[in-house]
Write a protein that binds this DNA or RNA. Structure first.
Lengths: 225, 225
DNA sequence: CTTCAATAACTAAAATTTTCATGGTAATAA
DNA sequence: TTATTACCATGAAAATTTTAGTTATTGAAG
């Protein structure tokens, strides 16, 4: 999953990033209002971790902005104890949850997972698409009931395709989702073809129908044939 | 196991903490209402030891709070003799057991163990998984009926795997469970591999099937092959 | 002092990701 | 139509990352 961490305290930022990256997520971060504002305007995230005490601006404005932009990123407010009012205001402005500092990283993870599941998978952790099922929390994929083994990139790719089923997804969007801002989008990331190929092959070999179509010059469409 | 000790008398708190930590549990503590309230809201514990005579608030409210939060932490009330009514009220509010001061630590431990067993293992103290059985209270593990000897970490690891069988558990989650929040989760704790390896080896040597799979980049999965 | 478990450090092995080379296919324009 | 170009598919090698396995050090318990 793709997560944006907006936090100005370096130590906390680092440990959050290390934790979520270690869990296999794509993480980006912003340490001040301006860069946070830019990130949320330009990109989409599965979940945004928002610390309200930001230098350079009022964190709550970011929530307003998200609403204006009609984005549907999940937002978890990380609040210092004294800013209870901000916290409640944040929920009013559309944040999905809040967490009071200090907290355990596992608690943070649990809440982030809950938000993502609610937003992306209607509260389920299993996506079903014809003969394909994907258990997001257990990282398990079955085709016609048989478990198949995917690498992380293949898995992420499949989840991304499935949460955008029947829609054309651009190569840029895929790259952005799977590699985050480490990826220079001016590069041509041919290696995405390799991952697509490998995923495709494993699905077909397991007996799935050929749901993945390439869209010349744009990207791919995964969905009903 | 993870235990929260809510107690304001320093001497008693210390001895309880020392005792349970010495038993190999992960312990946290709170000495007043506010911090207790925060802890129980944010985190989950296998068992909470709750002394009702707390500065800063009414301890029984914590039970109400737990119920509101739909938490299922075990709760053992540590009651001064005179507060019999509170004690009974506590049981009404969902506490699992009570213990009148003064008490022997061994008595306390026995009750805590009983609560945890009831909550986590459906009243059994034995987890059975194919040819592996784990007696949680006796810390005994058998494979095909033969007793094998595990160290504390190996044992905890096995119990953790078994209570998350067939699910991918991340290295972070394992670290959090086995070492609590003392562990800096932004470190890479390679030594966890050593414990995994030792556990794996002992199980295999005792004739168990190879139930433990590593999940590249994420962690491990213990379960049916 | 000895022993054993926990941790650390390091090397080897394995798995994954990326790069590279090549051939094919679709769009575009002369 | 055909040449040209950009794009996609594939196989395999290379690079990187992650895990396994060894051995050494620390620290506590007996």
């Amino acid at each position: 999953m793709k997560i944006l961490v907006i936090e100005d305290e370096p130590a906390l930022l680092e440990s959050i990033l290390a934790y979520f990256t270690g869990e296999g997520n794509i993480c980006e971060h912003a340490a001040d209002f301006a860069s946070a504002n830019e990130k949320i305007s330009l990109y989409n995230y599965d979940c945004i971790l928002l610390d309200l005490g930001l230098p350079g601006g009022e964190g709550l404005e970011l929530l307003t902005k998200l609403k204006q932009l009609k984005k549907r990123d999940g937002v978890l407010i990380i609040s210092a104890r004294h800013s209870l009012d901000d916290k409640l205001a944040g929920l009013d402005l559309g944040a999905d949850d809040y967490l009071v500092k200090p907290f355990h990283l596992s608690e943070l993870k649990a809440r982030v997972t809950a938000i993502i599941r609610r937003k992306n998978f209607d509260g389920n952790n299993v996506i079903v698409f014809n003969e394909i099922t994907v258990d997001v929390s257990a990282m398990k994929v079955t085709v016609k009931g048989n478990l198949i083994s995917l690498t992380k990139k293949e898995f992420d790719l499949l989840v991304y395709f499935l949460s955008n089923r029947n829609k054309v997804v651009t190569k840029n969007a895929m790259a952005e989702h799977l590699w985050g801002d480490e990826m220079d989008l001016s590069d041509d990331f041919d290696f995405i073809y390799t991952h697509v190929k490998n995923l495709r092959k494993k699905l077909l070999e397991a007996g799935a129908a050929d749901y993945l179509r390439s869209v010349y010059g744009i990207g791919y469409k995964f969905g009903d044939i």
